[in-house]
Design a protein around this nucleic acid. Structure first.
Length: 132
RNA sequence: GCAACCGGCUACUCUAUCGCGGCUUUUCCGACGGGAAGAGAUGAGGAAAGUCUGGACAACGUAGAGCACCACACCAUCUAACGGAUGGGAUUUUCUCAUUUAUUGAGAGAAUACAGAGAGUGUCGCAGAAAAUAACCGCCUUUUGUUUGGCAGAGAUGCCAAUAAAAAGGUAAGGGUGAAAACGUGCGGUAAGAGCGCACGGCGUCUUUGAGCAAUCAGAGGGGCGGAUAAACCUUGUGGGUUGAAAUGUCAUGUACACCGGCGUGGGGAUGAGAAUCCCUAAAGGGUAGCUCGCCCGAGUCGGGGGGUAGGCAGAUAGACUCCAAUCGUGAGGUUGGAGCUAGAUAAAUGAUAGAGAUUCUUUCUUUGGAGAGAAUUACAGAAUCCGGCUUAUUGGUCGGUUGUGUUU
RNA sequence: CUAGGCGUAGCUUAAUGAAGAGCACUGUAUUUGGAAUGCAGGGGAUGAAGGUUCAAGUCCUUCCGCUUAGA
């Protein structure tokens, strides 16, 4: 049975790391309606391989209710699908910081977001770990 | 029963699985700061929104006085307070009925930032004679006087009447406008006119009587009648110290009175050989939100900039609280009693999936009833110190009231 | 959280309470044709809705959008 929890230690809270991501140190690829920005962390003592955060732009959704709903759906898809990635990363003892942006201008159904999240994880594995 | 309007209430429900926030509790680990696992109950709104207002709370004792500035403005009441609410009044206005020459009255609603234009200043385009203590035309009087006519006279000339024109004055009855034209209509009056006088009517102001806590209403009387605008300046009255949870307190970590600029650096005394130190005074300078005074700091003072930390805890969730009952009040609301505890995050919790029920819509079958299938569960919208209000957004259901209309008894 | 500012023709902008200008656009003249130039012309519910006023871009109230500053 995989672990479906989402603890505080798994959240990315460091302002410095997020700044680094956006200043070209992090890599990224888009997968509509999502976009992943990630950065490999070194010298970290975190027991979880990935620290995750997300962002829904205020410019696209001016109402807090819409932003809240999309944020909760993305977080839910991450919580239910992250274990595939954890298994592989724990073997190699590598750590990453993840930020997911919602790039669409209108809200989507849960199924569509979940599908995008699954494909995103597969693509990340292929891109970063498949080479090694 | 239907329609319209107004107001109140509600905001899909249940079960299972996987999760999240804070709270309580049990067990285990621990470097005694805490951590992990399990269990339990609990976890968005009527507007949580806009930030338009009033407070609570907190900081600033250099928070004082006057002016300035800002806000409010019929009356009474409610309230912690309010620019809010309730009740009343006035004005404007809609509908119905009655009545009349106009109109007026009654009933039911709606709206009102509703103190003052008789304290002063400003503004009022175009049009119009004139837009504010109005004489352009017109009308009238007097004087001068042109022309014509009549009379008198030999004539000069004089007198009378009408009259072009000019001057002085009177006059707001009339004059195409305009949003607005100097109380309206009628009669008298006059040289012509005029509230100049009178009758009826209209509108302010003062005095007085009655009703009312009051705003105000009704009656009587005196004296009056030359606009509008105060959401123009303003006047009057009332209120306001300023800042604002990133407030503020506290613990931890860490650092540098290094640097630049403005204004200024006076006098007296004591010790001492001197350098200097100390004391007194308070001239300069500075602070006190804008000005003046006052007050304070004071040989310094104020500002800029730089360095460091960007973490924890408190503030911060039991309150002008919610529900029920009784009672007082027309009502907003008050009092008393009982019961209840009901979010508290900080990269920021309240979600996802499956099933069932309920509701709505579409559609198929069916004699009404009903049965099946599919879709949706909605609108507006997410707490961030907390309350009272206001404003704005809004779907469906349900309850109550008012008005109109139809049917039945 | 607090305190301000702005919104006018397609664009850039004026306007003591009575909506203009330049560029652009349309037509026309000129040219073999075009540009430039000359002449003529159209186009605004002044961000939205109410209110005050005879009259509102302006004054007041409430919304909408954009934007600035402070910690």
């Amino acid at each position: 049975m995989p672990d479906f929890t989402f603890k505080k230690e798994e959240k990315l809270k460091s302002h410095i790391l997020i700044e680094q991501m956006f200043q070209r140190k992090g890599q990224s690829f888009g997968l509509f309606p999502l976009r992943l920005i990630y950065l490999e962390m070194e010298n970290t003592k975190n027991e979880f391989p990935i620290q995750f955060t997300l962002s829904v732009p205020k410019r696209a959704f001016s109402k807090a209710v819409d932003r809240n709903r999309i944020r909760r759906m993305i977080r839910e898809t991450w919580r239910l699908n992250k274990h595939r990635l954890y298994e592989k990363l724990e073997d190699e003892n590598r750590h990453f910081a993840f930020m997911v942006l919602y790039t669409a201008k209108e809200p989507f159904e849960y199924d569509k977001i979940e599908e995008a999240m699954k494909r995103m994880i597969k693509r990340f594995i292929k891109k970063e770990l498949g080479r090694d």
